[in-house]
Computed example of a mutant assay.
Amino acid sequence: MLSTTRLGVTRALRGQFGRSHAARSFAQSAYQCQGLNEGQQHDRTTHFGFETVAEAEKEGRVRDVFSSVAASYDRMNDLMSLGIHRLWKGNFVRSLNPGRADSEKGWNILDIAGGTGDIAFRMLDHATNINQDMNTRVTISDINPDMLEEGRKRSLQTPYGNTDRLSFLQGNAESLPTVESNSVDLYTVAFGIRNFTDKDAALREAFRVLKPGGVFACLEFSHVNSAVFNAVYKRWSFGAIPLIGQLVAGDRDSYQYLVESIEQFPTQEAFKDMIQNAGFLTPGQGYENLSMGIASIHKGVKPV
């Protein structure tokens, strides 16, 4: 587990990593990105579940999936994970310990792919009730307007709806021109980054918007570290989840894509390398497995 404050995380890491390594990694990633000409970008392909599609096509198809599942998204999460996703999210927020009672400014948090507001509301509850911080604020950003609309509706059932502590931004995580560089204390993304077309670009953008010492935190489905348990998990994922999607949400295809997208997501070690290549320092092992690796929490710190 990380230290309970952003500053504590940063100080702990500064003695473990040098600034030059992160700077070189970030510069190398930027150089590689610039080396792709427009023709190469047009020809690039990516995964949409188990399909290989043009990068230009994936964004629209993902948008269609989440427009289809927006109204049933959180209810389906309960059914698909047998409610365990609530424990994972609670662990995630507690490990970040958002808020600072000794500051009039509070934290500026950007919750990416946060559509329905589940993580944002939890972070504001934690800042308010645990750290007595009434100033920390969260911007929920999502590429999908239907998911954001669900978040807006649900926010009205919380103390934060229609207040300056909660705002909504429709945008692509790979390019957030309205978010200033070095302006965000904490960048979170929960169960969303596996759907991004260009994950490396999104990580570079996270690095840009975070303040020096700011924390990138990702909760995502990952890879089970037990062969026996993995076999059981795969049977549940590919057998039960699309069927539940058909029976409850009337949408088998979207949930078939979601389980395939989990299978295609990089391993814990590979994703840690991607975070480091974007310029972040990663503490300790770099990630924390939950439920034997069904999900993992990844964290990175922008060097001071």
Rank of each mutant, 00 (worst) to 15 (best):
K199N: 09
S67M: 05
I112Y: 04
A206N: 01
N129H: 15
N289D: 14
M134W: 10
D146A: 14
I130A: 14
N37A: 09
E180K: 15
Q28G: 01
Y31C: 11
S181Y: 06
G49E: 05
L79W: 11
Y31E: 15
V232G: 02
Q276N: 11
V62F: 07
R14F: 13
I84L: 15
L36G: 04
N108T: 14
L203I: 04
G117R: 02
G250Q: 05
I297G: 00
V93M: 08
T4Y: 13
A173Q: 04
D125P: 01
F196W: 04
S296N: 04
I193S: 08
G286D: 12
W107Y: 13
D253Q: 14
I119F: 05
L2N: 10
P159E: 02
Y73V: 05
I275K: 03
F17V: 15
L2E: 10
F207M: 09
L258T: 08
V184N: 02
H42V: 13
H223P: 05
N37S: 11
R61K: 15
L186S: 08
G115E: 08
M80R: 00
S291E: 02
P283G: 02
I143M: 14
I109M: 06
T4L: 15
N108R: 14
N162E: 15
S3R: 12
T282A: 10
I275E: 00
R204G: 13
P159F: 07
F92S: 05
S68D: 12
R75L: 15
E57K: 04
D185A: 04
M1Q: 11
N225C: 12
T158R: 08
R152N: 04
G151Q: 05
Y187D: 01
I140H: 00
D185P: 03
D146R: 10
M292F: 13
V53M: 06
L124F: 05
G83V: 03
Y255N: 08
G286H: 10
F280L: 07
M123G: 06
V69I: 15
P212R: 02
L219V: 10
T188N: 09
E205Q: 01
T178E: 15
V232K: 06
